[in-house]
Design a protein around this nucleic acid. Sequence first.
DNA 1: CAGTATCCATTTCGATACTG
DNA 2: CAGTATCGAAATGGATACTG
Lengths: 228, 228
Amino acid sequence: MAGYGQFCPVAKAMELLDERWTMLVIRELLCGSRHFNDLRRGVPRMSPSLLSARLRTLARAGVVERHEDGKQVTYLLSPAGEQLRPIVEALGQWGLTWMPELGDEDYDPHLLMWDLHRNVDLGAVPPGRTVIRFSFDDVRAEDRHWWVVITAEGADLCSFDPGHPVTATVETDLRTLTRIWRGQLSWPQSQRSGELQVHGPTHVARNLPRWFHKQSILPPETAASYAG
Amino acid sequence: MAGYGQFCPVAKAMELLDERWTMLVIRELLCGSRHFNDLRRGVPRMSPSLLSARLRTLARAGVVERHEDGKQVTYLLSPAGEQLRPIVEALGQWGLTWMPELGDEDYDPHLLMWDLHRNVDLGAVPPGRTVIRFSFDDVRAEDRHWWVVITAEGADLCSFDPGHPVTATVETDLRTLTRIWRGQLSWPQSQRSGELQVHGPTHVARNLPRWFHKQSILPPETAASYAG
DNA sequence: CAGTATCCATTTCGATACTG
DNA sequence: CAGTATCGAAATGGATACTG
């Protein structure tokens, strides 16, 4: 894609940032994804070659730093990339306010659970192992059940029964949990209406909403402690 | 172009905003352009059909309002569009800081003079008619000379001699004035180095930098008073 | 002034398969 | 794990001319 041929700094910024997927890759990096396959999970509809191309472009532009530590490849935002954080947050806030409608395509249990599990507030969850099963009654069998396994080390996401005893079960539909997660609906509200039910010990049912709490976009230090 | 298939508000915002040219059209509207051909002057490399398509998309999304007053068609930002102002400003600041390099393609006397003339601080210019001629010694003859005619009513831009007596002449090269205008170089600095010369009465030479002063992005009321 | 219409070159992207 | 390779379909948009 050609540039805009304008000296305007907005134009120069958008030459880089308005390419398809680019802002979402940056969002993933802001959320703490550091490795190629982590990033892929955040943008699963993006082909790996395109993700690779975008990362190269961002690195060339000085927004992303690519580090090779032996076999391990790590992508980090440079200071320039880090300074996009308030912009990405503002775009998210704007999107939530002014483009609140979702299409059928936008509901995705993989993406939802991936985002939920990486926003577990480890400090809020009781010590020991906690296993929460999520079940979506309106999703095809294959993607219906999810397990979030929380220990002091972090939170893991499974799409199959990991075998540990389940602490509590959340039964709902994909739209409801998505709307809660986007901040358009509250947990208690949806529990009262019956759209979402938590089965398990009372204290768990009461506190669970606090365990999954979307930080707007996690600062990198915080995100690092979640790496799993 | 298909959407992203993500519930993330950033993704929903970018589905609209990351299409090529879209942010520049919004920038133009933020600067106070209200009519099709005004907008074209701000994005001259965009084909009219594409501009038309983008305006339609933005109107459908509720970011732009299209008003027909008789034959006159006016485009205005809706509240949703207006709330993009801080984002566009932040993108400009980010672009200036982190993508400061310009390519040869980015230097454009038309665009520069168009932007300069619409940022004249009418209150700072002495009463009566003031005519400033700008001459770029490194631009092909056709686009070398520009006249900015300032009266109480507003500032007009001519690419031909309008015939009025010239109050002062600015001689420089396109790169220098572009860099000044982007805030990467100061007027006095470039005058000292000789890259820019103002020929005319001393008080004019001294004050002229204050007459052209880029407001980051003009609020609409202010912009309206410049419409001409 | 405010756009439409047309048309094709180019780009871009998605899908899929494959590799060290 | 971290990508590359390939390929074709789709769409994107640039150029130009034209209209009420």
